[in-house]
């Protein structure tokens, strides 16, 4: 089940403008980069990106930037505070007629899961609490990717990282619900595999004033351990296995923008990635895999119940 499209029916309807030129030093197959490109197409002109320490910091390396928009690198812990200062300054200048309305900017925070789920959360929580009018894109690759893939608060149960070599027993922090508990006008999950769903969400949020928060599964060939050619396939499997639900919350009301008819077994997603290889070889961790599958099933049972939708056939 997909929700009815409001703005973009097919790929052909998506904006053709590019704000991110090719030739960045990011890894081949980076899901975060594709997400930023897709999101920026809908945001259009006049954007200032406030960046946190993370993979995307490498987008702008002096004297180059692949972006047509403006850029401010801040720190790992305070991009949302940088957004506050920028937004406030622009608003003050507009109110005092010291800047023309044509010079106004949309402020977009760009942060990975390391910043978003951890160090940056205090500043973001406070910015949401204040109702700051800004966009937030978290490219969630489920670990500290830029430093070589160490355990973060976004790492999913079972994932091996450089600092959890045998697979973590912690579960992924639910940042979507943490954000939603702050009652911002808009929160969504997105995936680069579903550019129309993503574009629809950005466009829907565009009329809203306040925090507009996007959580993107950023498939990560380097950290997750798969061929970059498989990036889109992995992103697709994350959705079809139900591991990465596509949803939004408008004024706190959650709805899923895609509910699979039938969930593919979560193993199909896991087995393609080096970070989960220890669950399959040398011995098969059957109970662990069953547990992971159960968690996914429980999630979708609750979705069907809450939204009165048809429950997917469980794997």
């Amino acid at each position: 089940m997909k929700v009815k499209r409001e703005f973009y029916r097919s790929f052909k309807d998506l904006p053709s403008e590019e704000y991110l030129s090719p030739g960045s030093p990011l890894c081949a197959g980076c899901g975060g980069l594709t997400t930023l490109r897709q999101m920026h197409k809908v945001l259009g002109d006049n954007v200032v990106i406030v960046d946190a320490a993370g993979c995307m910091t490498l987008l702008a390396i002096y004297p180059f930037t692949p972006l047509r928009s403006s850029w401010l690198y801040t720190t790992m812990g305070s991009p949302s505070a940088g957004a506050q200062g920028l937004r406030d300054a622009l608003d003050v200048l507009l109110a005092k007629h010291r800047m023309s309305a044509d010079d106004n900017l949309q402020v977009l925070v760009l942060a990975g899961d390391g910043s978003t789920y951890g160090m940056g959360l205090s500043a973001t929580s406070a910015a949401i609490h204040r109702g700051l009018d800004f966009w937030y894109l978290c490219y969630d690759n489920e670990a500290y990717g830029n430093t070589g893939f160490q355990l973060s608060e976004a790492s999913p149960f079972g994932s091996a990282t450089a600092t959890s070599p045998q697979g973590t027993q912690q579960t992924k922090k639910n940042i979507f619900e943490i954000w939603r508990a702050h009652q911002p006008p808009y929160v969504a999950t997105v995936s680069a595999h579903e550019p129309i769903d993503l574009a629809e969400k950005v466009r829907r949020a565009m009329t809203m004033t306040g925090p507009k928060l996007f959580l993107a599964l950023a498939v990560c060939p380097t950290g997750w351990g798969f061929d970059p050619a498989l990036s889109d396939e992995i992103a697709r499997l994350a959705i079809e296995t139900g591991v990465w639900p596509l949803k939004e919350a408008i004024a706190g009301q959650v709805r899923h923008t895609y509910i699979p008819r039938r969930l593919r077994p979560v193993r199909e997603y896991l087995k393609l990635q080096r970070r989960f290889r220890h669950l399959f070889q040398p011995t098969l961790w059957g109970e662990t895999l069953t547990y992971i599958q159960e968690q996914v099933n429980i999630y979708w049972q609750s979705v069907a119940k809450a939204e009165g939708a048809k429950q997917p056939t469980l794997a």
Partner: peptide, 22 residues
């Protein structure tokens, strides 16, 4: 006038605002 959540955030906001010309 805006109250931030920490001095780290406060100084980041201050710098970003000054870099925007207020």
């Amino acid at each position: 006038f805006v109250t931030l959540d920490s001095e780290h955030a406060m100084m980041t906001a201050a710098g970003a605002a000054a870099a925007t010309g207020v």
